[in-house]
């Protein structure tokens, strides 16, 4: 008879329960917004490679925000370069996993 593995309680939850810690509303709101931005950028890049101004136009985000998140995603291996325009903008595309 197979036995179901016992699920260990995570230490993060033990700490949270012990000290009564919970993320602030500010932090959870920030996380929500970050997730929305990453989803918007990912969707914008699904069809074809784009520059930062092109992504900004499609998503309605400002170019600074798009570039900041794009470079964070670039560092974590989620996007990569895909050529450069004559105006000096790189195009980026989603990295195949």
């Amino acid at each position: 008879m197979s036995r179901r593995p016992v699920r260990r309680k995570l230490t993060v939850h033990m700490l949270r329960d012990k000290l009564g810690l919970k993320p602030s509303k500010e932090l959870t709101d920030m996380l929500k917004r970050q997730t929305e931005i990453k989803v918007k950028i990912t969707r914008a890049l699904r069809k074809q490679p784009k520059t930062v101004p092109e992504i900004a136009e499609e998503t309605g985000l400002d170019t600074y925000t798009v570039f900041w998140y794009l470079m964070t995603m670039f560092r974590h291996g989620q996007v990569e370069e895909a050529g450069k325009t004559d105006e000096g903008f790189f195009k980026y595309k989603l990295r195949e996993r």
Binding site: E87, F89, F90
Partner: peptide
């Protein structure tokens, strides 16, 4: 990925 300006990623 290169020397780019932070405002819009332009070289």
């Amino acid at each position: 990925n290169a020397v780019l300006r932070p405002g819009d990623g332009k070289e």
